[in-house]
Nucleic acid binder design. Structure first.
Length: 190
DNA sequence: TGCCCGATTAACT
DNA sequence: GTTAATCGGGCAA
């Protein structure tokens, strides 16, 4: 796997598209948080009319970030223990988002990930889950509502990374609308 | 106010 | 494969 430095930032227009296009397109992009870089390798799409989506019952205090402009981060606490991070998509007031389920740290960020996650954790296991990657990056509710297209601390970048095999499968850990194949996994990078 | 449950993880057996 | 840990939103009373 050859990984080069990030080049350009994804603009709001990138996120202002159908969620089912944004989710697979995010694979292979670089997620930058507080000086750390990782390649996105797994995402899930959550649509406004999707019973599995937090936005399905309308806007609440908890999910309000999903209704912010495309590119806004939506962070929530899962099972009272972990944090998960999403990016709002489509348009302001829509309530759609992509859940970032897995990333692969770039070589320059592996050490920092290990400090937060544990020194003996392998590179692959450092951030191969939505809660793990938030712990690795240090993402908490403080990052809820952050604009990923303008923030100096957090952003998404194009990189010279080619995603080779994208697998589309049903989403993980949900009880409604389980048959929809809206999970996207990058099996290999070049 | 109280109860139930979840877009999870890791430490068990 | 199983299960405890642990917290806030949503709904019923």
């Amino acid at each position: 796997m050859t990984i080069l430095a990030p080049v350009d930032r994804l603009p709001r227009d990138f996120f202002a598209r159908p969620t089912l296009e944004v989710a697979p397109d995010l694979l292979g992009k670089v997620f930058f948080v507080n000086g750390l870089n990782a390649v996105i390798v797994e995402t899930e799409a959550y649509l406004p009319d999707d019973p599995a989506s937090h936005s399905f019952c309308g806007k609440t205090v908890r999910n309000a970030a999903m209704f912010h402009p495309p590119g806004t981060l939506y962070v929530y606490r899962s099972y009272g223990v972990h944090f998960c991070v999403n990016v709002a998509t489509e348009g302001e007031g829509i309530g759609a988002a992509v859940l970032i389920r897995g990333v692969m740290p770039l070589p320059d960020s592996v050490a920092a990930f290990q400090v937060r996650r544990g020194l003996k954790i392998t590179q692959k296991q450092l951030s191969n889950g939505p809660g793990k990657l938030c712990q690795a990056f240090g993402i908490t509710l403080e990052q809820n509502y952050v604009d990923g297209t303008t923030s100096a601390e957090i952003g998404f970048f194009n990189a010279a990374i080619h995603v080779k095999n994208v697998e589309q499968t049903p989403r993980i850990g949900i009880s409604k609308n389980t048959e929809k194949p809206w999970r996207f996994v990058a099996k290999s990078l070049l």
